[in-house]
Every structure is written in structure tokens, then in C-alpha cells.
Design a protein around this nucleic acid. Structure first.
Lengths: 152, 152, 152, 152
DNA sequence: TTTT
DNA sequence: TTTT
């Protein structure tokens, strides 16, 4: 209660997403995302800093990732932090912090504009990226209020 | 597609929320929210700057607002911007930008911790804020994945 | 004090930015930004909703806008809401809500990768988008801590 | 360039902050923060989920943490993710993901309202928390534009 | 491991 | 007025 746990990332995939299907045919996608920020240090020198994040997507978002994302894709991810812990075979306690995505926006689909036939990278062929209803890019606010009949 | 429109506010209600019910018994709440930020200007002087926002909540969130929020309440609102336009009686074009909330977190309920019986302010008596299941404070990610059986 | 007023947008410029210089040679840029979100309504139908925002940038960010942004540019803007009011000549009270940007990330510069010579749109010639040091894209956290000598 | 790495948290400190001073008298604070989100699972059952984060603050923010934060404090933190890795004595590779805070807003100072003399917890006495100008809570946008002489 |  |  009374908590907020929100992450917003824009970055590039380091590899193609790893997608798996659990029982019930539930898709889960996982990939590394690099966010690079540039800023000036105290001396005014330009510093570029890259951070790697593990992103996990479920269900519909995982399926979108499978269809449209690949190594190098630029994406906006909104989600929350989750830290998992376990013991490895030697009994060492391990931790991993992941970003579980609630929303995904693809930012380089625009490539298609210039170049409909050859999406920028080695998709696995399939019928991917074309067409224009990779609907649900946003899986957003399930709020859809009645039209503009606000009584104010 | 490919868009993001997100607002995050923490501030205090300027008045009790105005709640109305549309056909279908759909609740809509509206209130002014003051966000005050403090920072230093170029000269190092401390500046306090208050901005007023119009917040609109629908359905369940509007009902929570009606039950638990009042003048002075401190809240976290996450939502999106929406600008409406219309003509007033004199035919002047008018604009109003509102924040339509998708998520609400009440930040001063904690009062209850110290003082279960007298929430900090003049609630309308009702069965207000006590108890600890004013559930649904967050109306968040409808993502609920299977437990920790991630195959990675 | 105790307030937050934050806006995060990803969208396209409706027109080239309008850039002006105030006394002291302070740059101010202003433009309209369209954010389009797609989601399913209660009936499962795909709805696309575009919202227009007025974005204002100051100083260095305004200069970046002047150099690199144009009609159609896809950008990430982080900023805060500010509502201004005034009276027009007829004495009508007017309001305008703007997003004052604190951070700007250009999301389609990538165009340059494919096509160094013809940025996607009619830049004003100048020495625009090429080169790779349109530094300061991010004008971010002026926090730059000492290297990784954290004592924990 | 072209990246965003942003985290927004609202939660409670699990313990008093651990504050240290590095050479140059640079303060660094570190603490665990619990964010609890409540939502309904697929079956409509109310689920409460707590996530623990490691938060690191530098310089002025660390000093504020030292003065005003303690076990149980409710805070808003805005920052970015940083993952550090190292090898422990046994040569095992270890990872730790932290939230490096760029902004801090204290959300329960209001306690003072009800109870000026006994802030909710064992402060180190110092006369701190009272008064109402623990200014600089926000250390925000170093943008401070000239007053409202926008030429638009 | 990405990207500029 | 943008973009898909």
C-alpha cells in the first residue's frame, strides 16, 4: 500500500530476446537493454555512461518482443523493479534485479518508412514487422472512459 | 503508436474532490492539486514554486477519491495529459489541460498509524480511512504472472 | 516542498520549433508535440488517441532544438507542467498549460545511420545533424560522483 | 546518447541510513527502501507485494538523508539504476543493482503537523526536522529561466 | 552484449 | 500540426 515502484528506460537490446513459453502457453521474454546517458562531469568533460538492464516481459508483451524486437532495437520500457534471489549449486546466495515491463514502445520501427522491405536487421524471416497492426504496442491504461461528457 | 504521455505528481488537494456520477453510475472525480517544488536559482537563492493542476479520476479511482481524499490530502497521481477545448457562451475558444489519473497513492493515510481514530481532517464521518484494507489504492499493472518459475 | 511535478512524453513535432532569443542571448524554443497512444477499448476495439502538447525549452536545450529538431522529429521530453494565464485584448482570461522541458532525447537521429546526407527533413542546411558530438543531448543529473570507491 | 535510465520509488526505509564521508568530505548515504504495491490478481484477490531496493545518495542528498531520514520514513526517490559487480573473497562474481538518487522528497515530515515535538522516530536530537525550511528537499532542475517574459 |  |  502506498508504494510506487516504477522504472522508465530507453535503450537498445544487446541481443535478440530470449522467449520461452510456460505451461498454459504463457510467453516470457527476456533480454538485456543498454541505456547510455551522456552528460558533463564536474570538469565539463563529456562523459558517456552505459548501464545494462535485464528486462522481462510477460504474455502479450513477450509475444510482441518475439515478433518485432531484435539485437539493436531501440525501445521504451516502462515497468517495475523486481529482485530475485536463489542459491547456486555451491550454495552461494545470488541476487538478480530485473525490470518487469508493463509497457513497451518500439522506437525504431520508423525504419520501415524508408525501407519497407528490409527492416534494419536480421529478423528471423517470419512475416514480421510489416503490416500496420502490430496493435497493442501500448498495453496501457485499461481506462477508457465515456466520451467527452464530463459534467464539469 | 509509439507515443508516451505520462504525468507524475505529488501534491496537496486544494479542496475536497468534486465527485459526480454519470449514466451507468460511473463516478468521475475532479480536484485541484498543488505541487510545490523548491530549488535554488542561479544566485543560490531558495525558490519555492507552486503549480496548480486539474486532476480527473474515473470509476474506481473516483470512488476512492470520494471516500478518502479531502482538502489538504497529500497524494501521488500518475496519469496522462488531456487538453479539452470548447467555446464559451460568448464564442471564445477555451482550452483546459487536465491530468487524467491512472493511478493514485494516498500519502498521508499514515496518520492512521499514530492516530487511528481521528484521521487528520474533517472527513465526512462515513466509514473513512481506518481499517487497513482500503484496497486498490493502486489499480496497477493487471500483470500478474505465475510465481517464480521463470525458466531462465 | 514535498512536491513532484513531472511529465514524460514521447512524440513527434507538429512543426519546426519556433526559437527566439531573449535579452542576454537566452534561447527559448517552443513547439507542438503529438503523442499518440494506442489501446483497446472496453469492446476490444483498437483505439488510437493523439494528444497535442506545447513544449518549451530554454537555453542549451533550446539551441539543440534549433539545430536538430524539425517537423516530424521523434523526441523524448522530460519536464514539468506550467500553466500560464493572462487576459487577451478583450479582457478574457486565458490559460495555457505547457511542458517545460528539463531533458531531451532525440529518437530518430538514427536516420543518419542509413542516410548521412539527407536527414529526413528540410533542415535549414546549416551544419546540422552529422558529426557525432551533438553532445549534451542529455542535460542530466549534474551528479557525478567519484568513481566506484563506495565504502559499503 | 539517446538513452533514458530512470527510477521512481515511493516507500519506507527499512533502517536508518548508513552515511559515510569519503575523502573531500563527500557524503554518501545508503539505505534499503521497501515499496509495497497492492493490486488484484487474475482471480480478483487482493495481492500485496513488497520489493526491497538499495538506494544510494551522494553529497547534499546524503546529508539530507542523514539529518532527516530514519527507519520507517516515507520518501519519494527519483534516480537511475546502476549495477555494480565484483568478486567476493571466494572468487564468486557478485552483482548488486542500486538506485542512485537524483532527487528526494520526504513525505512524512508532515508528522510535524500533529506532533511537533516528537517526530515519529529517534532522531539524533539535533534540533532538526522542526521549523519548516528544511529547504532544498528538491535539488531539482537547475533550470531557472527568466520570469514570465516569454515572447510567444 | 547495444547504440551514438 | 506529427507519427504509425
Amino acid at each position: 500500500m502506498r508504494g510506487v515502484n516504477k522504472v522508465i528506460l530507453i535503450g537498445n537490446l544487446g541481443r535478440d530476446p530470449d522467449v520461452q513459453f510456460l505451461e498454459g502457453n504463457i510467453a516470457v521474454a527476456k533480454f538485456s537493454l543498454a541505456t547510455t546517458e551522456t552528460f558533463k562531469d564536474r570538469a565539463g568533460k563529456l562523459i558517456s555512461q552505459t548501464e545494462w538492464h535485464t528486462v522481462v516481459l510477460w504474455r502479450g508483451l513477450a509475444e510482441l518482443a518475439q515478433k518485432y524486437l531484435h539485437k539493436g532495437s531501440l525501445v521504451y520500457i516502462e515497468g517495475r523493479l523486481r529482485t530475485r534471489s536463489w542459491e547456486d549449486k555451491e550454495g552461494n546466495k545470488k541476487f538478480a534485479t530485473e525490470v518487469v515491463g508493463d509497457n513497451l514502445v518500439m522506437l525504431d520501427k520508423r525504419m520501415d518508412l524508408n525501407n519497407q522491405d528490409h527492416p534494419i536487421a536480421h529478423h528471423s524471416g517470419s512475416g514480421s514487422g510489416s503490416g500496420d497492426n502490430y496493435s497493442g504496442l501500448d498495453i496501457p491504461p485499461s481506462l477508457n472512459e465515456p466520451a467527452d461528457d464530463l459534467p464539469f
